[in-house]
Design a protein around this nucleic acid. Sequence first.
RNA 1: GCGCCUGUAGUGAAGGGGUUAUCACAAGAGGUUUCCAACCUCUUGUCCCGGGUUCAAAUCCCGGCGGGCGCACCA
Length: 574
Amino acid sequence: MPESRRLDRLTSMMRRRGIVFPSFEIYGGVAGLVDYGPVGATIKRKVIESWIDHWTSWGDIVEVDSPTITPKSVLVASGHVGEFNDYMSECLSCNSAFRSDHLIEGLHENPDSLGGEELDSLISSNDISCPKCGESDWSDSRPMNLMFPTTIGAMSSGREAYMRPETAQGMFMLYPSLYRHFKQKLPFGAVQTGRGYRNEISPRQGMIRLREFNMAELEYFIDPEDPPGRNELGENEGTMVEMISDPEGEYPGDHRISFRDALDRGIVRHPTVASFLERTYDFLVKIGIDGDKIRFRQHAGSEMAHYASDCWDCEILGEYGWIECVGIANRTCHDLESHEAHSGTNLLRAWRQFETPRKVSREVLSPNGSVIGPIFRQRAGEVVSAISELSGIPSSIPFLLSLEDGSEVEITSEMVTLKKEEGNVHGEWFTPHVIEPAFGIDRIIWHVLDHAFTEDGKESEDYVTLRLNEKVCPYDVSILPLFDKDGMDVLAESLLSDVLAIRGIQVNLDSTGSIGKRYARADEIGVPWAVTVDHSSLTDGTVTVRNRDNQQQIRVPTEKLISHIENRDVSSLF
RNA sequence: GCGCCUGUAGUGAAGGGGUUAUCACAAGAGGUUUCCAACCUCUUGUCCCGGGUUCAAAUCCCGGCGGGCGCACCA
């Protein structure tokens, strides 16, 4: 059985059993858009719920939810408008594509600001040659709009906006409320799950590169002078993982190392980043990703996103090779500072209390209004503010004071009083730094399915078991009446409604075909427990429970089974 | 976006100008009374879309859309 075909079998199973489909198929389909079907949507919801639970159970992380439609100004400040609206020129000789502004680097002060026609004329007038093949035969430059534009409001009065390319900006917008929610104390974080949009040039590889995708992001706000994380890391004997560090960095190469060692040796440069690497690993393993198929790769300086000062990818190995599924970035103060500058707000900061108040004493010149007023009359206000804005104390009095309009006035000793101000400074304002783990939920779901998909042909050759972790299975239980009559059908229906009544538990009832076929159907979509109602059930109120992964079967009283389902510990029955 | 390959029931495949498009599995109804994809009978359902060539197109040609791979791109 050639390994290359496993991908095809997995993909067709996913369609056949209602996990993932191409979207809008009866109209020809759209590349990069997928539907989750009845089975897949439950798996997806459970992955997202597990993710939210994983982070919020930490205690200082809360969930928020922001709009996907985002005004242009927000994305200008974040840098997405500039970064995402690049023009591309294509070499008609060798078909290579290049960023147009990079081609004319040095020929213009700010190539990034130019429009398509200006770029084209500069490229042709300077006879730019292709960096790859040397020819000078260029296509017209085309804008690469990686964001989906839209308009808020009707007609020409509408406001320019985009579908968000990441959920992160919504959390930066909420920083002031989060800061208040957490009683003005760092560190704290916010998570958000939802859709993100990127108009990919060529979506590929099924659900790996989508144009509308499910993302889950965490923004963790910290004091850069007191970054947390070191104490949360596992001890030295902690999990060993593969880490590929920055090839241009201080410790290039491929390491097999614990998170704590990686931090202590400087491979991971930041304690909070190290802590999130570990917690990311823990989450992935918790929902059923194979720990041996996870590795972390540090971005080289040259491939870093425009906002990140340090970045690690978490890559997972599957049928498509190693795929980046999580990005963990130290975004520093970039976003908050930029939003502060663009919006003019001063709410994007935090207060750092000094351990002991710092005594400060300084001399100030205090303007004497009763003298200045009568002398300068209508210019008095200007003079008073100029005095209080003086950076130092003049060496002698009287002195010449420069006003805003450039004129000078003489200030005499009667007009000012030299005061010595004593005071305590208790702290200072600063812009928090942000550590961001960003998860591609669809890619993670793909790899959960990939790693769970097991073909171990018992007697028949292609017997499929989806060994999903119970946290992410589409149904918790399958109820199977051995025969669909003689009262077993009735008993199964009543058991079904009892189990359906349990909050958060998904059940299905399957009474068609042979019992073996029904086990096989349940195994294929990863239902962990199959409950069979048989003849004995009618007389003694017991049912059999079958373990998906080893076919082991036990007989238990129905009430006992229901209480174990309620407590989510069916496995303890075995 | 370029190049090569490609598109037939839910899934996987056969058919490559000429009656009513074939098969397996799946699905539905009934039978069988069964604990690991059993069997029997019956049933439903398919040529990606649009043009063109032709007496006749699922088949050949062109375009679009979708898919695979390579190049490029990839917060």
